[in-house]
Amino acid sequence: MIYFKLPFNEKLYTTNQKPGTDHVNFYSFDGLRQLSFEGDFIEADPVQFEQVIITNESVKKDDSRFNPESKDEYLQTLQEVIEVIKENELPKIVLSRRKIFKNFNHIDYKESFKNMCQAYPNAFRYLFNDGENAWMGAFSEVLGKFNKNTHEFETMSLAGTLPVSEDWSKKEIEEQQPVSSYIRNILETYAENIEVSETYDHISGNIKHLRTDFKVTIQPEDLDTIIHELHPTPAVCGIPKDFCKKNIQQFEKFPREFYAGYIKIETDDTVQYFVNLRCAKLYQDSVHVFVGGGITTQSNPEKEWTETELKSEAVLKNLVIS
């Protein structure tokens, strides 16, 4: 089963499990895994949803044997990543970690999902359990949105993170600009005229990001290729893409799985692609929260750790536990 809400839309959706169609698809960060939910997506019956019991007993036990990184381990890895960036004169590499939460007896995942929906109305919010995998997330970064009628394609450059009350520094600006350049260079291959917004603050709960919007008109047959070229963007990987992906595999203690991958949602009129950030893998006896940040030569390891702690609150503060 899967339940989800679209950004700025409080209608609850699910799929009708109709064989032969799959309009909701999850793709892993490395592109090697795809998880599809059969059927068209339909509006869920609120009464029926209230009768659904989604507790930690309804998901698998954690047999991953993963041990979370300590703060000291993560700070040491960050320092090593900064050295690689300096040696290779890279704009940025994105490093992530898992924060594993086990301090509970019981979790009501349905109520936790409701909390996330209320906390992040501008995000794509989802909860699913297919028997093998159970995940929950809420995130507002759009990899792409295509209008089948007008052929307009929209995407965004979203990078740099600070608490809402703090002012932007050189580090965040240097982190976001290469993402914008990367997206522009790809879109110029497929369109002559690109509409680009001013860079502005994008608020997400207790943190903010720098955001720039892009809009072009493309040929429908180019859509899949554009998405393939955009993913993973520098906001979740780094520049150059292949070099950074290789280093991510070397430095990160755990595989990312569906974290920093993307979700494709298709209707009769649109195809939307959401980056899977602020998410967690759910178990009976633990919650694996995925968090990360863009590392540059300006990065301070202590501040980067604090940033990941802030990002983990998107999931952890909304859990209904006992």
Results as ranks from 00 to 15, higher is better:
Phe146Trp: 12
Asn300Leu: 03
Leu310Asn: 06
Leu230Met: 09
Gly292His: 07
Lys102Gln: 15
Gln250Cys: 01
Glu89Leu: 14
Lys11Phe: 03
Thr306Asn: 04
Pro234Phe: 04
Thr297Ser: 09
Phe104Asn: 09
Ser181Met: 12
Lys208Val: 06
Asp72Lys: 13
Thr308Tyr: 06
Leu210Ile: 01
Asp213Tyr: 10
Glu304Arg: 04
Val179Ile: 09
Asn88Leu: 08
Arg97Asn: 04
His231Gly: 08
Pro301His: 07
Phe258Tyr: 15
Phe113Gln: 07
Glu43Asn: 12
Lys171Glu: 11
Asp224Leu: 12
Thr199His: 05
Glu221Gly: 03
Val216Gly: 01
Met116Phe: 06
Gly293Phe: 06
Gln79Cys: 08
Thr161His: 10
Ser70Lys: 02
Thr212Glu: 12
Lys311Ser: 05
Thr155Ile: 05
Lys18Trp: 01
Arg98Gly: 01
Ile194Glu: 01
Cys117Trp: 07
Lys60Gln: 14
Glu192Ser: 12
Trp168Thr: 07
Asn16Leu: 13
Pro68Asp: 08
Lys71Asp: 11
Gln17Phe: 11
Pro46Phe: 12
Leu310Asp: 09
Gly137Ile: 04
Lys170His: 03
Val164Lys: 14
Val24Lys: 02
Glu172Val: 02
Asp201Lys: 14
Ile54Met: 09
Glu302Tyr: 02
Ser169Ile: 00
Ile227Thr: 06
Phe124Ser: 04
Asp213Cys: 04
Phe66His: 08
Glu87Tyr: 13
